[in-house]
Simulated assay, not measured.
Amino acid sequence: MTPLLKVDHLSKEFVVERTVFGRPVKTVRAVDDVSLEIGKGETLALVGESGCGKSTLGRLIMRLVDPSSGTITLTGQDITSLSDRSLKPVRRRVQLIFQDPFASLNPRMTVGQMVAEPLMLHDIVPAAKRTERVKELLQAVGLSAQHINRYPHEFSGGQRQRIVIARALAAEPELIVCDEPVSALDVSIRSQVLNLLADLQKQFGFSYLFISHDLSVVRHIADRVAVMYLGRIVEIGATEDVFGDPRHPYTRALIASIPVPNPGWRETTRPLEGDLPSPINPPSGCHFHTRCPYAQPICTTERPALVSSQGHHPAACHFQNELPAADDLMPVEAVDPRLSRLFGAFQALSTKEPAA
């Protein structure tokens, strides 16, 4: 079966310093030889620390940034080198939900004008029916049709993010890139927006590339998880496999860092030591070896391939089969059952945000 999106050996370099004559002196490889696939109706989460290249990869997939090398294929069509004119139909098929909903909305346009803009640009709905379609989209994301003439500053953060989602839905996309869509929202609102995204996916059948650094969110929304470190994918697999049996030391450190709301839980895993290396001058071999507690001499010289071993999901680690058991990296199992029931009850009661 042909995947909806296929990325092969994608890389992107940015010039950070030039000579007086314009010759590049220093470059940073924000995305380094990345390959992945997203199926139809699937949610692939892309996780990692800030600065690892997650957002850059999302923008490369949308062709907002031109790649330095590699290919991007959407339902069998190579979109890597399409012209701006040829990209117009691709723009409709791939939409973006930004991290900061207030910054991504035009303060001088009403909600109705912003949501109607994709309908007009792509000629999706006749002009006479656009207002009715905008009202339908607002209701689909949990807002009222009466909000159509309001401006962004009249809404809360969660409501503004719903407007951004409605605008993305207007184009009837096949893939939505969610770039930290709930990180700017209050904790009490995040579950509402996540539930909304899951419900819309079931209703319309599109796919998500869900970019996040919050693994507790990713665990509940993603079908598969790709872990990124300094521009490279270091582990990828089904969500239950990555969380239940992480094969890369960096993934284990990320999972162990998930906060656990249980005073009786005692963490037994050492946190990561050292700072994130500079992407301008990354370590040789395995980029993670400067912070890895299991590093060996081969890690400093030879880059590990992203491969599966002994029936496990793919990981880029020379010693993925020699790592100790990961039984103590299960924060979810350490949560007090009473807290889990309370959180579940809260989610059930807070499925819809009050209207402004």
Rank of each mutant, 00 (worst) to 15 (best):
V7T: 07
V7Y: 06
K12Q: 13
K12C: 14
V15Q: 01
V15P: 01
T19W: 07
P24Y: 12
T27I: 13
A30Y: 08
G39E: 14
G39V: 04
L44F: 02
G58K: 11
R63G: 06
D66C: 01
D66F: 01
G70C: 06
D84V: 10
S86F: 00
V94T: 12
L96W: 15
F98Y: 12
F102C: 06
M109Y: 13
M109E: 11
V111E: 02
Q113S: 13
M114A: 11
V125D: 01
A127L: 12
A127F: 04
A140I: 07
V141M: 10
H147K: 00
H147R: 04
N149V: 09
S156H: 09
I163P: 06
R167S: 10
L169Q: 05
A171F: 05
V177F: 10
V182Q: 06
S183Y: 05
S188F: 03
Y208M: 10
Y208L: 05
H220Y: 11
H220W: 00
G231T: 00
I236L: 10
G244N: 03
D245C: 02
A256F: 05
S257I: 05
V260P: 02
R266I: 14
D275P: 00
S278I: 07
P279K: 08
N281F: 14
P282G: 06
P283K: 09
S284M: 02
G285Y: 08
C286R: 04
F288R: 11
C292H: 04
Y294N: 07
P304T: 08
L306E: 05
G311R: 03
G311H: 07
D327G: 00
S340C: 10
F343S: 15
A345R: 15
F346E: 12
